[in-house]
Design a binder for these strands. Structure first.
Lengths: 228, 228
DNA sequence: GCAAAAGTGTTTATGTTACACCCATGT
DNA sequence: ACATGGGTGTAACATAAACACTTTTGC
């Protein structure tokens, strides 16, 4: 069947808010724009959606192309379409957010053409388009989500210590948490598998754990609800 | 600045999942399609986004045009863009969901050209496009949202009884709730204003309440978090 | 032996659940 | 007077919060 709509069409893009955690604060991955408009400004990785690809695919492709990231946790965030958000004309953007583990982080100041760099979420430079707003919305979503879904693990190495996990929660939620209560509560879910592996370094070694995705999925199917 | 992108563009539409509550179960407002494809099928109200209008505006306009609804609670849900979801070609749809009060309900079997009718969410007819999926996603979102944001009030008359409110929660959450505990908890928020107005009818009159939106907004600004 | 981070239990306060009877009205 | 839905409190239980010291390592 031929495609016969006569309506004018907005351009359609995807943009990705990529979150990372370095042990200290939450970071966002930005690229320097190599094209007008906003040439040279920091911006979210993203670009035009191809005619035959799904929206998620478009987001993954752009991430790959502009930041060399693949295999990340990715979720649709919100669609931004206010007329005027792009100086060139009507552009509607489907925004996504991604969570990447430290071991997946591309080096800041990557050799590639499109320079990508991590920026602390609370000290962002001026950004192209409405990307500041998009990041604000992504942060809000992440803050809400982390409390009732175990997405935090996507920001940590596969093997992590309870202290790392706690620091992550503290960084995202923006408040301190009692160590004993935190550990008690998380271990009570019985979703963290203790490993026979420990950190080494200047101080007492800490036990490493991994998150039991399989068990979590099974529990969810049986109506289980993770909460903080 | 002229608009110079050379990329092919998907068509862009909005679709609205309109929820209503009649005291029994949760309902969705559907229209019969007056055009191909899916002529005569039930579908969500929706249509093409104009070049100069915001996405929310487009959703409100389509609601007005197809169901005569205005002034409803409206929120963006998700953007559906899988190639093939529309037999005519690539169409990306930004889905919204709306909550309407019983006193705003358009009469089922409206006189207008586009026939609109309420359908119980758990007994939907076959729908056009991927609208069944869109409704499923909207329901999921509503179920999640009602527990931590006081959106339920948008589905009730401005003045309502505690029993109505409880029935609504039971309908959406799909389980029964203890009457005394429910009332205790809700009244403890101190966000329901008791009125000097009562229902009349066959039995003991029930006190009417209204939700204190102002106070809620103020509390939220001070970090308050409504939950169940 | 000291600095630095890891690890561990108990008590108290708070919130959640379970549960049964009387009340006001229309017919 | 009876049928129907409206309205109310308390005790048991479970969950969350507060809180301080010992352990292990590298230097």
């Amino acid at each position: 069947m031929p495609f016969t709509y006569e309506y004018p069409r907005p351009a359609l893009t995807v943009d990705c808010v990529v979150f990372g955690f370095d042990g200290g604060g939450l970071q966002v991955l930005l690229i320097r724009r190599a094209l007008e408009p906003f040439l040279g400004s920091w911006a979210l990785p993203g670009g035009f959606v191809d005619m035959e690809e799904d929206l998620d695919q478009a987001a993954r492709r752009e991430l790959q192309e502009e930041t060399h990231l693949s295999q990340v946790y990715l979720e649709q965030l919100f669609t931004f379409g206010t007329p005027g958000r792009d100086p060139r004309g009507r552009v509607v953007s489907v925004a996504y957010y991604a969570l990447v583990r430290p071991d997946q982080h591309p080096a800041t100041g990557d050799s590639d053409a499109s320079e990508a760099a991590w920026h602390p979420v609370d000290q962002l430079p001026p950004l192209a388009f409405d990307h500041t707003q998009i990041i604000a919305k992504a942060l809000e979503r992440l803050r809400g989500k982390i409390r009732y879904q175990p997405v935090g693990f996507e920001l940590l190495p596969k093997h992590f210590t309870l202290t790392q996990l706690q620091s992550l929660y503290e960084a995202i939620l923006g408040r301190t948490i009692d160590k004993r209560n935190f550990r008690k509560k998380l271990l009570a879910f019985d979703l963290l598998i203790p490993l026979d592996k420990f950190t080494s370094g200047a101080h007492r070694p800490a036990r490493l754990y991994r998150f039991d995705h399989r068990k979590y999925d099974t529990l969810v199917r049986h109506g289980f609800h993770f909460e903080l």
